[in-house]
């Protein structure tokens, strides 16, 4: 699918917004500003052509439901930050890298290959909640991106910690 041209101002304003959002949730953007802005440009291009902000370093299918796990911030960001100090595309980095002590490096892909994903999908949702009766006054929802939990009738429109959208929440209890 051809890429859409993203104006410079759009990249700049997304960069500013993402910086504020990341820091407010305890996350950090890559301090290599030129590299980071190119990733954000890619992210905005993906948003324009697919209708959702798929990871710029992964091939999106164009089917949102199949790509929920790679909408930025992706489901793999936090485990990758913990294990490697950066996410797969290196838009987000650990405090150590953000502080300039280390540099982000290319890391292995954590997302299962397409054949595996198909099997996982066929098995149905792998949430922690098996359904059935619960003694809790409210259901508990978990953000698949950052693990934020909340007890309320429905998940929030946006995760207050990592800004992932409502559709990224799963029933936890």
């Amino acid at each position: 699918m051809p890429a859409k041209k993203i104006p410079e101002e759009a990249v700049e304003s997304a960069y500013q917004r993402l910086t504020v959002e990341a820091e407010s949730g305890g996350y950090h953007l890559n301090p290599d500003v030129a590299f980071t802005k190119e990733l954000i440009r890619g992210l905005l291009e993906n948003e324009a052509r697919y209708g959702y902000g798929a990871c710029p370093c992964r091939l999106a299918s164009g089917i949102k439901d199949d790509d929920l796990d790679i909408i930025c911030p992706c489901d793999y960001r936090d485990p990758d930050l913990a294990e490697h100090g950066s996410c797969y595309c290196a838009l987000y980095v650990s405090g150590a890298i953000s502080g300039g002590g280390q540099e982000a490096e290319a890391i292995p892909e954590r997302r299962p290959p397409a054949s595996e994903r198909k099997k996982i999908k066929a098995k149905g949702p792998q949430g922690h909640f098996e359904g059935g009766a619960t003694s809790l006054p409210y259901p508990v929802w978990r953000c698949r991106v950052c693990g934020y939990l909340c007890a309320r009738e429905e998940p929030p429109e946006q995760c207050p910690i990592c800004k992932a959208k409502k559709e990224r929440f799963e029933r936890f209890m």
Binding site: A3, F35, P56, A90
Partner: peptide
């Protein structure tokens, strides 16, 4: 490569 990917660039 991917046109949007930082590591590809």
């Amino acid at each position: 490569a991917l046109s949007t990917c930082g590591w590809c660039k």
